[in-house]
Amino acid sequence: MCGRYGRRSDKQYIAEHYRLGDLRDVPLEAAPDWNITPDSVQPVIRLSKDSGERELAFLKWRLVPFWSKTPKPPFESINARADNLLTSSAWREPFQRRHCLIPGEFFYEWEQIDKKRKQPYAVALKDDRLFSFGGVWDRWKDHDRGHIIESFAMITCDPNGTMEAFHDRTPLVIEPSDYDRWLADVEPSQLPIDLVRTYPAEGMKAWKIAKLIGNGPHLLDPLPEAPPPALMLF
């Protein structure tokens, strides 16, 4: 599971990276955030229903399927496993019709040391660039009150060599050259299932960090290495 991520980029940089054009009419800000948590509202890139062009939208990070009876999904839905995208009723339709790109520059995972202790890691691409998690989104409507929730989930794949030492999943990363294919509205037979793949270990780095307390660049500070044990001289 990927349950925390972050980005240094602001709304303007995101607009430039995804070639979104003028965002002066977009009411919300996409400020840098080093500790993005589930249930927060975050920027994603999707295709506009009206124009068919890329748009910046602000969605809740925990997908609420359109068929859910309540705004609280009946299952854990911040992540969608790659191997369930075409078989699960939760993910099949979003994967067929509603892809999105989730801007990020790093994410966090935890290694289970023992029953009581976990060691957090920060993970990023080796060149520290802004990248896109591959995601799916959905729109839920309360038919009695008319309330609408648009939400997203991040797709996860099998771990690569960098991740498998401390975790069993890796978020899907979509390269800029594949943005158009990922977002395109296509027939089920043309879905970009080949893009749902584990990111190469050689392009990723991970390092131990302290507990995630607060929000800011300090969360990415490497954990100091423990000094070697002192030699006992007799």
Rank of each mutant, 00 (worst) to 15 (best):
F166V: 11
L101N: 06
T162V: 14
N35C: 07
R54S: 08
D114W: 11
W61Y: 07
I209L: 00
N35I: 14
M204Y: 02
D39T: 15
N215D: 15
K115L: 12
A210K: 14
T37W: 01
L56N: 03
S132N: 09
Y18N: 00
S89K: 15
E55S: 05
Q42A: 04
K126R: 15
Q190R: 14
A30L: 06
L223V: 03
K205Y: 00
P74G: 14
V123M: 14
F133T: 11
D185S: 12
I155W: 08
H218I: 00
R54H: 08
P43C: 04
G135W: 04
P217A: 10
P65L: 07
D194Q: 13
Y179K: 04
G52P: 08
I14E: 01
Q112K: 15
A90K: 12
L223M: 14
F131G: 06
A31Q: 10
E93H: 05
P38G: 06
D50W: 02
A124L: 02
D39W: 10
V123G: 03
E225R: 12
P65Y: 04
Y121P: 09
R19I: 05
L85N: 06
W182E: 08
P227T: 09
T170Y: 01
L28P: 00
N160S: 11
P94G: 12
R19V: 11
A80G: 08
Y13D: 12
Y18Q: 00
E202G: 11
R117T: 15
V64C: 12
W61D: 03
K205H: 02
R54W: 11
G134A: 05
S68L: 02
R4H: 13
R181D: 13
A210L: 03
E150Y: 02
P74L: 10
P192A: 04
S88T: 07
F95T: 02
R97C: 06
E29S: 12
F107N: 08
L191K: 09
R98E: 06
I148C: 04
A165D: 14
P192T: 04
C157V: 14
K211W: 03
P94L: 09
Y121I: 11
E93W: 00
V44F: 00
F58S: 07
F106L: 08
I193Q: 10
T156F: 10
G146P: 13
F107W: 15
P222R: 10
V196C: 06
D221N: 15
F234H: 13
